[in-house]
């Protein structure tokens, strides 16, 4: 039974996309990864509109003071088990905006991040690779129990 559940979890990761104040470069690449050219529905990945439906929170951009509460709220609206992917150098560490007066830094200052995808912006291939790494991580967690 647990085997079947872990199989289902691995085979159907649904994304929700959230921009915490980036320049939109990573968003364009993430959207490109969802287009017919790369077609992530092959792996069962769907982009969902509502955080209540999603498993993976894909965050792009550095966390600003203004967006922090909203980011936490979106995260808390997601049902367990949930995972966070930081896409792009800004989301990984805050990058050029690291010491700005209005920026906390990377997503890991606020949320537990499971996979980091560096790049400015990361290529769609890199994003898909990151999601696959996350899926392998979920698989490992499930087998360890």
């Amino acid at each position: 039974m647990t085997k079947a559940l872990s199989w289902a979890r691995v085979k159907s990761p649904w994304l929700i996309h959230f921009n915490t104040g980036g320049c939109n470069g990573c968003d364009i690449e993430l959207v490109a990864a969802l287009t017919p050219r790369f077609d992530v529905e092959r792996f069962g990945i769907l982009l969902e509109g509502s955080p209540r439906h999603a498993d993976i929170l894909a965050v792009t951009g550095p966390v600003t003071l203004q967006v922090k509460d909203r980011l936490l709220r979106i995260y808390e609206q997601m049902p367990e088990p949930k995972y966070v992917v930081a896409i792009g150098t800004c989301a990984v560490s805050g990058a050029p905006f690291k010491d700005c007066y209005n920026v906390y830094g990377g997503v890991d200052k606020v949320l537990p991040v499971d996979v980091y995808i560096p790049g400015c912006p990361p290529k769609p291939e890199a994003i898909i690779d990151g999601i696959v790494k996350l899926i392998q991580k979920i698989k490992g967690e499930e087998s360890r129990g």
């Binding site: 559940l5 289902a8 085979k11 159907s12 529905e41 792996f43 069962g44 609206q77 049902p79």
Partner: peptide, 28 residues
């Protein structure tokens, strides 16, 4: 594009996997 591909033969088990995953998730 191809659509679901790797869940069972040509993705035929995809709806079932989605259903099972949703059943096991937290109910808010």
């Amino acid at each position: 594009r191809y659509g679901p591909l790797y869940t069972g033969p040509s993705g035929i088990l995809q709806p079932f996997a989605d259903f099972l995953k949703l059943l096991s998730k937290e109910d808010i």
